[in-house]
Amino acid sequence: MRAIVVSATGGPEVLAYTDHPDPEMNPGEVLVDVAASGVNFIDVYHRIGRYPLSLPFVPGEEGAGVVAAVGEDVEGFAVGDTVAWAQVPGGYATRAVVPASRLLRVPEGVTPEVAAAVTLQGLTAHYLTHSTYDIKPGDEVLVHAAAGGMGLLLTQIAKLRGARVIGTVSTDEKEVLARQAGADEVLRYRGFADAVRDLTGSGVHVVYDGVGAATFDESLAALRPRGMMALYGQASGPVPPVDPQVLAKHGSLFLTRPSLGAYIATRDELVWRASDIFGWVASGRLRVHISHRYPLAEAARAHEDLEARRTTGKVLLIP
């Protein structure tokens, strides 16, 4: 098969497109012909070594495709099924092996490309809005990078739950996308905490922050007393150590650093979240914005554009 292989951590240039042995399928696993692979910031963190993996490795934790073979002890999947997955390594390839316990059936009305674009970020947006902070009608929420793949999904799902959504973006073009997703108010990053307080009076109930270092302090200042700061990513870099007294200063705030694995730890929870996401997509209630599709061989360019903020919505690699 063909795959992207990382033999040394570093810049996008370490993403080598090469021949690679087919993955071995063990009992309980499924072999998939990959139709599309999702590109996420976690892939960048793996590539640069922020979250180290054993070298060499095939990056990519999200994809969709068609079942080519099923291993022993696999039930519920058959050759020809359209499937998707998240948080399983090896997605930047023409073939991938996925544990059946982590595999998701893609319903009619959802294409493999859309499934690859929505699975990881959709599951993340679901747990953030349903579990990390369970949004109630009338809640006011702040979504950073509201025109990015995560931001567009968070905005739409928060609106489905009845929230007033304030988004932050960096350009007029991105503001249009955020408003199309349902954002009630859209701000630029400079001075956003003061602007949020002007709009809400006392601050928002929850901040969904995947930006990290560049927005963290102001995000705390944008919260109302006893508000929740959900720091789910660090696209601008890791947040320095935090003095817990800062949380008291801003009004007994809650701070959490959630991750997807803890929220899909059981098969039942994984299927619940995925069923909601795929169901909303199939019914048209959740729109997936795919901004860029790159050939698998151009993974380095995809990473360059993602890191340079030249993309909106979701980025895919197509084998």
Results as ranks from 00 to 15, higher is better:
42 I>T: 13
130 H>C: 03
209 D>S: 09
310 R>W: 04
281 V>C: 09
290 I>V: 15
157 I>L: 14
167 G>F: 11
240 P>D: 03
109 G>F: 04
131 S>W: 08
32 V>M: 09
110 V>P: 11
222 A>Y: 08
48 I>D: 09
137 P>C: 11
36 A>H: 07
265 A>N: 11
6 V>S: 02
310 R>P: 04
175 E>F: 00
11 G>E: 11
91 G>L: 10
297 A>D: 12
235 A>F: 07
264 I>L: 06
140 E>S: 14
167 G>A: 12
230 A>W: 04
3 A>E: 09
139 D>F: 01
174 K>R: 14
224 R>I: 06
118 V>P: 12
42 I>E: 05
129 T>R: 11
104 L>V: 03
207 V>Y: 09
221 A>F: 03
50 R>E: 14
207 V>L: 10
178 A>F: 11
69 A>N: 02
216 F>R: 04
79 V>G: 03
178 A>D: 06
264 I>Y: 03
95 R>I: 02
271 V>D: 12
50 R>H: 11
288 V>N: 09
8 A>N: 14
195 A>T: 10
24 E>P: 00
119 T>A: 06
266 T>N: 04
245 Q>L: 14
314 K>T: 00
38 G>P: 04
136 K>F: 06
172 D>Q: 14
286 L>Q: 08
258 P>S: 02
228 M>D: 12
123 L>W: 02
184 D>G: 07
34 V>K: 09
318 I>C: 13
150 M>T: 10
90 G>Y: 02
232 Y>E: 08
98 V>I: 14
187 L>E: 03
251 G>I: 02
162 G>W: 05
169 V>M: 07
161 R>Q: 14
249 K>N: 11
298 E>Q: 15
310 R>K: 15
83 V>P: 03
288 V>L: 04
264 I>D: 04
80 G>M: 03
178 A>R: 12
130 H>P: 06
